[in-house]
Design a protein around this nucleic acid. Sequence first.
RNA 1: GGGGACGUAGCUCAAUUGGUUAGAGUACCAGAUUGUCGAUCUGGGUGUUGCGGGUUCGAGUCCCGUCGUCCCCGCCA
Length: 589
Amino acid sequence: MMRSHTCGELRPTHAGHHVELCGWVDTVRDHGGLIFIDLRDRHGLAQVVFDPRDSQEAWDTAQATRSEYVIRIAGVVEPRPADMVNAKLPTGGIEVRASRIQVLNRSQTPPFPLDDEEAGKVAEDLRLTYRYLDLRRPLMQQRLAKRHAIVLAARRYFDRHGFVEVETPILTKSTPEGARDYLVPSRVCPGTFFALPQAPQQYKQLLMMAGLDRYVQIARCFRDEDLRADRQPEFTQIDVEMSFIEQEDILTLVDGLVASICEAAGRPVPSLPLPRMTYAEAMSRYGSDKPDLRFGMEISDLSAIFRGSAFKVFAGAVEKGNVVKAINAKGLAGVPIRVMDEWTVLAKDAGLAGLAFIRVQDDGTWKSPIVKFFSDAEKEALRAALDIRVGDLVLFAADAPDRVHTLLGRLRLLAGGMAGVVKDDTFAFTWVTDFPLFEKTEEGGLQSMHHPFTSPNPEDLPLLDSDPAKIRARAYDIVLNGVELGGGSIRIHDPAVQQRMFQALGIPDAEIEDRFGHLIRALSFGAPPHGGIALGLDRLVMLMVGATSIRDVIAFPKTQKAMDLMMNAPAAVDARQLRDIHIRLAGIE
RNA sequence: GGGGACGUAGCUCAAUUGGUUAGAGUACCAGAUUGUCGAUCUGGGUGUUGCGGGUUCGAGUCCCGUCGUCCCCGCCA
């Protein structure tokens, strides 16, 4: 061992101990006589003092050290006099009087400052290019450590509940109906390709058919789609599957998992069970299938109030079977015209004719282009429905329900952010259940909202031929602060139902056999009822540590163009490698 | 694929309407300095204004293109 202690652990109780420390030079304060070096490692910071009267040789070396040099020192722990204690440091009660110093390695001047306060402002591409330096920062190390603690808590939780962790293949088969796949050419089988898994979905179901009963995996997943602050091309899921269970069992299991993880992350543990709402309710009240419940501003249905109104735009909408809904953006009566214009553009982009509004002025009067059409009774009903008060801004939308919900849901988030009513320190979990089984494709066909192995709600099965869009799935998402943390479903275990589902999705029989034959066959060999869920670990950790991007909780993340700036990946390969895998490049300048 | 923001010293930023030698803080280098802990003091500018074109007497500033980073929409079963 090159060290007797870490830099963060020495206390006044160590006084008189002879210690050896290793670490990086954080700062040097040279007083001509005394030299102070703050020595840093993952565990903390310790002040080391060099006095030429102790060792001229050590003092000379210390004077030549610079930021980020790696050094090893030996010395004696001394308590600091009361007036020299540094209350900001856990080790501030002591210092090490050094008798020896060894420079283990020198360092160039870092390309950006490594203290958390300054580095937080540095351009992210620079941090990513020198990620190993960025990760030296205490904040980044804390985040990685917390990620570890969360994964450990999850593994312990699942172990306690009898789960077995199984690794599934990274080289697998393309499933074109999902996200775009990352492909890997086969050398041995010319002209064929593996795909990296978008999720271990089929494998985990097959493990249920294998009788594994309770499966978990901290699984890496790959999707070749455009990136966002909360989306990376490779990411990690806590992937779970169980046999002989119902939806309720999964929800209860994950409730407990979430509580364990919050505890491990040092966050307030939510009271269980976590709140639940249906998809229909989430859309109707929050205009989103991942509602942010940290604030109100819920969507109110005003259709009944405006049925037959003198205001023909609203009355006409109701007449046609559309809806009139609104949110009360409390306190935002003063938003600039510019913002209202932007929001009106959003409304038009969403397919609506426009965005109606009421500003409630300081004297209580309503400033609005439309209130002159409202009767006194309608105004009173409005006031009651939306709790309208001085300073409020009411935003109306009248159109088909899905358009209205999408728009008002989006405006609700913008308004909430602008009004500053979103409490950062609050954790608002919710389950969203009863998702639709299908959604419409651009071509007018059907596609699975979750995935094609999702079980329909048995009550709705008769609708499969008549009105498939109305079928509810036994599918559920867990949402935290408006972020989709994870989702899952009860799966189809009847091969006949699975076959019908593929047919409903319009997949030709030959293709069903080609792509899913193995699964249907497996279902026919005594598949147990089963279901599961997958939770996005990166997003979970992001929220637990208060980061705003999952890049901040991934050691080596990729940029928006899916590049690794440190490794310079992806990169061209040489001709021989291409020949080996039977690939010829075409059409690349 | 689309919309938006940004790109000036190692880093974070400034630079009037297009106008003199592109500045500040910090970092860095040199010297001083025996109780600092964001040490201090003195001195030093270290620059292909992302890149390529264009307009102009004159471009960091205006125009076109391009590259890169970020945010959003589409996309993400």
